[in-house]
């Protein structure tokens, strides 16, 4: 398991500031599909009981229904667990030096990307739609210098706060980075 005190490539004095995941509301469609999937075999059994109650007197057929129903339920349950894994393993970690974007794509795909805070140029938060406005969740787009591709935090809670935090921290890091550069190379000569 990944420990926040031991992140990949972590500097000794680096601290985790925020860990972000998608809003819990994005799990609701998964919850509804769980309910539907769980109720489907039960509903079918009840319908058979009402329409053809004598069907259950055939033991061979009942056994076949039990075998099929149980495998259906087991695989549906596994499918939901895998979807939950997909949700749970998508994480954005903001430290006082960088942003880590960890994305799980299905069961066998995983992307880990990293962005130094001093390279952040522009941060945009977006809350669009009824539910997102009601529950205050949405996207944060992070643009870096010289890169077309943006870092995107998807469906995170309180995107405005997260955007503000990242902007403030990137400002601090930029100043720090500049001071370090001046210390190392000196002030640039204005005449040249």
């Amino acid at each position: 398991m990944m420990n926040l005190k031991n992140l990949p490539g972590q500097a000794p004095d680096e601290n985790v500031v925020k860990v972000l995941r998608r809003h819990w509301l994005t799990l609701l469609p998964l919850g509804f599909s769980l309910l539907f999937i769980l109720l489907l075999p039960i509903a079918i059994a009840i319908v058979i009981e009402i329409i053809k109650p004598d069907l259950y007197s055939n033991q061979a057929l009942t056994t076949l229904l039990v075998l099929g129903g149980s495998i259906f339920l087991l695989f549906a349950w596994l499918f939901l667990y895998q979807n939950y894994i997909d949700y749970y393993l998508d994480i954005w970690i903001v430290t006082d030096r960088r942003i880590l974007n960890i994305e799980q794509h299905g069961l066998f795909g995983r992307t880990v990307s990293e962005l130094r805070l001093y390279r952040v140029q522009d941060v945009t938060s977006e809350v669009r739609g009824f539910w997102k406005t009601m529950f205050d969740y949405g996207e944060v787009y992070i643009q870096t210098a010289g890169e077309e591709q943006r870092f995107i935090f998807e469906d995170i809670p309180h995107p405005n706060d997260a955007a503000k935090l990242i902007l403030e921290m990137s400002e601090v890091q930029r100043k720090k980075h500049l001071e370090e550069a001046v210390e190392e190379f000196g002030m640039p000569d204005k005449k040249s």
């Binding site: 398991m1 990944m2 420990n3 926040l4 860990v19 495998i71 087991l74 695989f75 596994l78 667990y81 895998q82 894994i85 749970y88 393993l89 994480i91 960890i102 799980q104 069961l107 995983r110």
Partner: peptide
Amino acid sequence: LLLAYVALAFISIVQMMRFALV
């Protein structure tokens, strides 16, 4: 099918235990 299920469930749990945050 149950055997296939057990194998898939095992892989899923391993992924969860390996990559999730503590």
